[in-house]
C-alpha cells in the first residue's frame, strides 16, 4: 500500500510550468505505449468476440449472422427455461466444492514444500505431474476410479474394507463433488506453483523481525506468510470462480450433464445450445446472463469489503 501512495504523490504533484506538463504528458504516453500491445490484443482477442456475442444475443440468428432484432426475447427464453434455476444452483455447487478442495490443500502443500529441505526437487516434480499428464490419461484414470461396476478402483477398495459398493458418479448427490475432485487433481499443481512463487517474495527479514518479537511458528504463519499470500489467493479465487462458472468440458466428458441433469452447468448448457443445437443467439444470451450474475456478485463483494473496512 505504502509504495502506491508514494508513486501517486510523485505523479500528481502540482506541476505549474508548461515544461513539466509536457514532460508529464510525455511520460503518460510513454507508459501507455508499454501497455499498448496488451491493450490491442485485449481488444482484438477478448472484446471483439465478446461484444459481437453480446450484440448477437439481441438478435435472432442463423449461425452467427444476425437475421432479426428481437430485443430481450432470447434472454426471456433462457431464463424461463424450466431447468435454468437447477443449472444455476448446480453451478454454484461446483464453485463451492472447487473452492473447498481447490484453495486450501494446494496452499498447505506449497507452504510445506517450501519448508522442506530433503528431496525438494523430487517432491516438486512429482506433485506437479498431474498438471502435465496427458488429458487422455486423466480421463482414463478417473473413469476407472469412479466406475460403478464392481471392478471400479474405488469399489474394489470399498469391497476390500467390507463396505457396500457405491454408484459414484451415478449418484446425483455425489456427482458434482466427484467431478470437482477430478478437476482439482488435474489443476492443483498450477495453484501450488502460484503459491510457491508468491512465497519466494516474502522477505526473510519479516520472519526474523516477527521471531524477535517472540512470535511462535503458528503466529508467524498467520501474521506473515498467509497475509503475504493474500493477493495471490484472492486472484486465484476470483479466477477459479470465473473459470468454474464457465466450465463445461469435464461434465460433458464424465457425465454428459447427468444423471437427470444433476451435473449440468451454465457453461454446458451454453455449449449445448451453441454447438449441439446451433442456437447461437440463446447461447450468447445465457453467457451474458452468467456474466451479469458474476458482475453483481463482485460488486456486492466490493461493497461488503468497503463496509467492513469502514
Amino acid at each position: 500500500m505504502e509504495n502506491k501512495t508514494v508513486i501517486k504523490k510523485q505523479s500528481k504533484a502540482p506541476y505549474k510550468k508548461l515544461g513539466s506538463r509536457l514532460v508529464e504528458a510525455r511520460n503518460q504516453s510513454l507508459m501507455w505505449l508499454l501497455l499498448l500491445p496488451m491493450v490491442f490484443t485485449l481488444i482484438l482477442c477478448h472484446w471483439n468476440p465478446i461484444f459481437r456475442g453480446m450484440i448477437t444475443s439481441l438478435f435472432h440468428t442463423k449461425g452467427f449472422r444476425m437475421v432479426e432484432f428481437v430485443g430481450l426475447n432470447n434472454f426471456k427464453d433462457v431464463i424461463s427455461d424450466t431447468l435454468f434455476l437447477k443449472t444455476l444452483w448446480n453451478t454454484v455447487l461446483y464453485v463451492f466444492w472447487s473452492l473447498l478442495l481447490g484453495v486450501i490443500p494446494p496452499l498447505a502443500l506449497a507452504i510445506v514444500l517450501n519448508e522442506v529441505v530433503h528431496f525438494k526437487q523430487g517432491f516438486k516434480i512429482i506433485t506437479y505431474l498431474p498438471a502435465i499428464a496427458p488429458a487422455l490419461a486423466a480421463s482414463l484414470i478417473w473413469m476407472n476410479i469412479f466406475s460403478p461396476s464392481p471392478g471400479g478402483l474405488l469399489n474394489v477398495a470399498l469391497k476390500a474394507m467390507g463396505l457396500p459398493i457405491s454408484q459414484w458418479l451415478l449418484n446425483e448427490h455425489l456427482t458434482i463433488p466427484l467431478i470437482v475432485v477430478s478437476m482439482t487433481w488435474k489443476g492443483y499443481g498450477v495453484t501450488m506453483l502460484l503459491y510457491l512463487s508468491a512465497l519466494q517474495s516474502i522477505s526473510q527479514e519479516l520472519y526474523e523481525a516477527s521471531a524477535i518479537d517472540g512470535a511462535g511458528v503458528w503466529r508467524r504463519l498467520f501474521t506473515v506468510t498467509i497475509p503475504h499470500l493474500g493477493p495471490t489467493m484472492l486472484l486465484f479465487v476470483v479466477n477459479q470462480i470465473i473459470g468454474v462458472f464457465q466450465t463445461f468440458d469435464q461434465p460433458l466428458v464424465m457425465t454428459g450433464g447427468g444423471p437427470n441433469n444433476a451435473s449440468t452447468t451454465l457453461g454446458l448448457t451454453s455449449y449445448n445450445l451453441a454447438f449441439s443445437y446451433m442456437q447461437v443467439d440463446r447461447s450468447m444470451a445465457l453467457g451474458t446472463v452468467s456474466f451479469i450474475i458474476l458482475l453483481v456478485a463482485t460488486l456486492f463483494y466490493f461493497k461488503m469489503k468497503k463496509r467492513m473496512e469502514d
Binding site: S11, H46, F291
Partner: peptide, 24 residues
C-alpha cells in the same frame, strides 16, 4: 508506473475474465 486510467484498465480486465468465453 500506474499511468492515468490504469486502475480502470485493471477493473476492465477483471470484468473481461467474467465475460462468456464459450463462443469466442
Amino acid at each position: 508506473l500506474q499511468p492515468k486510467g490504469s486502475k480502470f484498465l485493471f477493473a476492465l480486465m477483471l470484468w473481461t475474465m467474467m465475460m462468456p468465453h464459450t463462443l469466442t
